[in-house]
Amino acid sequence: MSDTALENETSASGENGTRRDFLYVTTGAFAVVGVAGVVWPLVDQMNPDASALALASTEVDISAVESGQSITIKWRGKPVFIRNRTDAEVEAAKSVPMDELVDPQEDVDRAVEGRENLLIMVGICTHLGCVPLGDAGDFGGWFCPCHGSHYDTSGRIRRGPAPLNLAIPPYEFMSETTLRIG
């Protein structure tokens, strides 16, 4: 050991540092990796667990939703709005010029071709997560009472603090009357 110590001292001013410096740095690096390895499980346990991720998709019978009506179903713990829009509502949604929108998106991109009247959206305000009220607001669509966000008949944000349009979940028509969400 005393040999090494001597050596260290003589090479202390060397450009590459001493062997002891090397040991410090490697030990430190291992300690950091070790601590990170221990902390990660503690952090990651808070993420959605296997049972939450496994939440299956939901099938809905939409035959009873008449024109102008809407229903709310639960998918992944969240409300999903299924609205059978009137032709007038669809027209109103289509006629909005893109430059009036906060988060520009055509109405055709928000509904399935051939079934434009059915608007299917996650019923969660993109501001801070409240459930907006239907048939309300200054644009004939939805209104979020929490901090005053107005959505139009296409569920697009028009006024208020929310930054984005109401989200469209992944969905598929299984038949004329059944819809699968997720």
Partner: peptide, 13 residues
């Protein structure tokens, strides 16, 4: 937010 919730909305976790 998902991490805080432990899911996709405020729920049991």
């Amino acid at each position: 937010v998902t991490w805080l919730w432990g899911g996709f909305s405020v729920d049991q976790p």
